[in-house]
Design a protein around this nucleic acid. Structure first.
Length: 461
RNA sequence: GCCGGGGUCGCCUAGCCUGGUAGGGCGCCGGCCUGCUAAGCCGGUGGGGUGUACCCCCGCGCGGGUUCAAAUCCCGCCCCCGGCGCCA
């Protein structure tokens, strides 16, 4: 059984170093991992030899006469002391080796643009007609034409209201002030039409994906440490994950985590692969590393709903599924009518688990920027190695680690911000995307064509 | 939460009381046989190291302890089943 990264570390450490350099991480960790792995193997062999000696003596003992037996037991005891000593050393080396191996990032696909930050992201395609406020025109062209992307647009002369003000001041359908008071910043109350909109978006996504053969899953919202640390890197753990006090439980930051865990420690016959799931869950994120970014509104919050695509595949299937996932996400956003571009994320911005990542970014007319709505990653065997998720090939019963791919379908609050900015009219109402109406029309109180400002005060609703 | 029963190499199961290093069945893989298939027969089927047709170590839910030796005895935890309690 071989894990891509360990295999590369042993057979070609220089190549692994290149990967690490491309991610702008200190390549010294590769040297250290290489040395420790070697040291571990040597020590393991030595300890195994000692254990063997002890096992030989042990198995002789029951057949010996009493006096002889006493002698051999003494000998075994002496040997045991020595074994304990070297086992302690081995354990320490093993612990450090494991820690280092698990801190190694995934390999990088050859098509990933090399660069330290998002300015190196490579736009690969776009869709829709962006509404560009006159003063944002240069920004828009810099992010499209300037990067070789030909995107349709119309210049507008009125300045759209930002999603945060739209929510709170124009529509009066959200209250982050009160939420901040009772829960903290980055929490929110949403009311009426925006709640309907949240649920309609989720229904739209699961309806779309289940029709394409995905298996629908409502997963656990909390996981044990062992599981969640198998799915994410240390950075994410520190910055995103909430812990339940006094228990070995952590709130998921996305359904990806519980979906990856769905087949933990299993062997999957090759004919069952690929397994393709759509999960729906709330997501809980600390946003510890975010500082003051997007502090207003509901773009970056501690809690939201998300529909997630997730797949387990054979190694040779993963790139096709990866492309399928981003295409399906695109179709969802086309359906909503939100203009977007897809970017190939630069090496320095890839998380440790991903070998390649696409972001789908919607044009936000009030902010004058493209903002991330969807993130689609191929993690190869980075997650499955940690969770020991394997496939078996019929031919020769060969085993290997499956590949895992994950992608957002729709994240509720973020998509709502995109709708608030893109579908507002100069007179301050918001048009409901037509494709969502079928999920709203069965509810008498849900909005149908437009979302209008709340006439009453928020408190009295 | 309490009481009782249980967790064994993909699945089912023996072994546990009485400690001596995991046996059987199914499935699957490889081979033999065969006009083909089936049946039958032989071997393989947890993880790791290595000198890679060989040898060795570790492994019986997880983690400790006792012992020369633990699936087996002791302690803690997790999960499953049944009963009681509680509950949306």
């Amino acid at each position: 059984m071989s894990w891509t990264i360990l295999e590369l570390l042993r057979s070609n450490p220089e190549a692994l170093k290149d990967v690490v350099k491309k991610r702008f991480i200190d390549p010294a960790i590769v040297d250290e991992a290489y040395k420790l792995d070697l040291e571990w193997r040597k020590m393991l062999t030595y300890v195994n030899e000692l254990r063997h000696k002890h096992n030989v003596i042990s198995s002789e003992i029951p057949r010996l006469p009493p006096e002889e037996r006493k002698k051999r037991i003494e000998e075994a005891k002496r040997l045991l002391k020595e074994i304990k000593l070297y086992e302690t050393k081995l354990k320490e080396i093993e612990r450090r080796r494991e820690e280092l191996l698990l801190s190694l990032p995934n390999i990088i696909h050859e098509s990933v643009p090399i660069g330290p930050d998002e300015t190196y992201n490579m736009p690969i395609r776009c869709w829709g007609k962006a509404k560009v406020y006159r003063e944002h025109l240069q920004l828009f062209l810099g992010e499209t034409k300037g990067k070789g992307l030909e995107m349709d647009y119309e210049v507008i002369d009125w300045r759209p209201i930002g999603h945060a003000d739209m929510l709170e001041k124009a529509l009066k359908l959200g209250d982050t002030q009160k939420a901040g008071e009772v829960a903290g910043s980055r929490f929110y109350y949403l009311f009426d039409d925006l709640v309907w909109l949240d649920f309609a978006l989720l229904l739209y996504a699961i309806d779309f994906l289940t029709q394409r053969g995905y298996k629908l899953v409502l997963p656990p919202y909390m996981l044990r440490h062992k599981i969640i640390s198998g799915v994410i890197d240390l950075e994410t753990f520190k910055d995103a994950i909430y812990k339940i006090e006094g228990e070995d439980l952590y709130l998921i930051a996305t359904a990806e985590h519980s979906l990856a865990a769905l087949h933990a420690y299993e062997e999957i016959p090759e004919e069952e692969l690929p397994l393709i799931y759509v999960g729906i869950s709330p997501c809980f994120r600390k946003e510890a590393g975010a500082g003051n970014r997007d502090l207003k509104g509901i773009f970056r919050v501690h809690q939201f709903h998300k529909v997630e695509q997730f797949a387990f595949t054979l190694p040779e299937q993963s790139w096709d599924v990866f492309e399928m996932f981003i295409r399906h996400a695109e179709e969802l956003f086309k359906g909503l009518g939100l203009p977007y571009r897809v970017v190939n994320v630069a090496s320095g911005e890839l998380g440790a688990p991903a070998a390649k990542k696409y972001d789908l970014e919607v044009w936000m007319p009030a902010q004058g920027r493209f903002r991330e709505m969807v993130s689609c990653s191929n993690d190869l065997d980075w997650q499955s190695y940690r969770l020991r998720i394997r496939f078996i090939r019929r031919r020769g019963m060969k085993k290997g680690f499956v590949h895992t791919i994950n992608s957002t379908a729709i994240a509720s609050t973020r998509t709502i911000t995109a709708i608030l900015e893109n579908f507002q009219t100069p007179d301050g109402v918001v048009e409901v995307p037509k494709i969502l109406r079928r999920y709203l029309e069965i509810f008498p109180k849900a909005p149908k064509d437009y979302i209008y400002p709340n006439k009453k005060s928020v408190q009295k609703t």
